[in-house]
Amino acid sequence: MHKHILKSKAEKYNSIMINYLIVPGLGNSGAEHWQTYFENSGDNFFRINQQEWDSPICEEWIKTIDQKVIEFDLSTVILIGHSLGCSTIAHWSIKYNRQIKGALLVAPSDLEAPQYTFPAVGFTPISITKLNFKSIVVASTNDPWVSLERAKLFAESWGSDFINIGEAGHINAASGHTNWDEGMRILNTIY
């Protein structure tokens, strides 16, 4: 169903096929996660696989993103980040300054919060530089990894549209976001 929806949208926009590059956060996104659902929804969805998912180094993660992005016509690329993947995209944007079509940034983790004690190197301070492409930040009111206020600050700093979807936890499989149709609808607004 989603493949048909995306193809119809692409046909409306001069038959340009959009390439969706999925940027998971810490630990990757498992089989039940909405990012996997997105990945399986069409041939134009690609997961960016990192070498080290559990003790990430920002410089390595952004290099891996860039290697995948440059495989495509940049004007067709939309990045789909979750959690740590969102701040990784922000760091990638500063370092490589590529003009892509856009990004969907879901539940951006606040690595500067005291509860964020995971081994992640080089991701702080969180970039507050405006992104040079269209972006949407999606957040919830009860995410344990980012307060709504901080998510709004990130969106404002990055020049992103902001969507609060209410009490949705970290917007992952644990909070029931598996076949996340609302997320797919939001993604389809990045044109």
Rank of each mutant, 00 (worst) to 15 (best):
A10F: 14
I186K: 09
K9Q: 15
H91R: 06
P144S: 04
N14G: 12
S127A: 11
M184V: 12
V138D: 11
N172P: 09
S109D: 13
G159W: 02
T64N: 13
I57Q: 15
A173Y: 04
L153G: 04
Y96Q: 07
F123L: 04
D110R: 04
D110F: 05
G25Q: 09
V106C: 08
E11S: 14
K9S: 14
I128W: 00
Y96R: 02
T36S: 15
W61I: 01
A31P: 11
P114M: 07
L6M: 12
S140E: 09
K12N: 14
Y37S: 03
F123W: 01
P119L: 08
G85D: 02
P114K: 14
E32D: 15
P144A: 03
M17Q: 10
L187K: 11
D66W: 03
E112S: 12
A31Y: 02
D110A: 09
S109C: 15
T129S: 12
E156T: 11
N40Q: 15
S140D: 09
G122W: 00
S29A: 15
Y96V: 01
S109W: 05
H33V: 07
E167H: 06
S29C: 14
W53D: 13
A168C: 12
E32M: 12
A113L: 07
Q67E: 11
G85C: 08
L26H: 10
N49K: 14
I48F: 07
P56A: 10
F38Y: 11
G30W: 06
L131A: 01
P125R: 05
L187H: 09
W61E: 06
G183A: 13
S93W: 02
C86T: 06
K63S: 15
S147P: 08
S41W: 01
N19H: 09
K9V: 13
S55P: 06
D54T: 15
D66F: 04
L105A: 13
S83N: 07
I57H: 14
S127C: 09
H91V: 00
G183E: 07
I22N: 04
T129Y: 00
H4W: 08
P24N: 07
A90W: 00
A103Q: 05
A151M: 11
S15C: 05
W61K: 06
S140I: 06
G81K: 02
V146T: 08
W61V: 01
L111C: 11
Y191K: 12
Y96P: 02
I171Y: 00
T129H: 07
K134I: 01
G25T: 06
D110G: 08
E52H: 13
H91F: 00
A31F: 06
I163D: 02
E112Y: 04
E167R: 07
A113T: 05
E52K: 13
Y20W: 04
Q35M: 13
T129N: 11
I171K: 00
L6S: 11
M17T: 08
K101C: 02
F38P: 01
M17F: 01
E60I: 10
V121P: 01
G159A: 08
Y96A: 03
S8K: 14
R47F: 05
F72C: 02
G176D: 07
A139I: 03
Y191T: 10
I65P: 04
D181N: 14
Y116K: 08
P125A: 05
C58R: 03
Q35A: 14
P108G: 13
E149I: 09
G166Q: 09
N44L: 04
I89R: 05
D54H: 15
I78Q: 03
I78S: 00
V137F: 10
Q51N: 14
V138E: 12
P144M: 02
R98G: 06
A31N: 10
K3E: 13
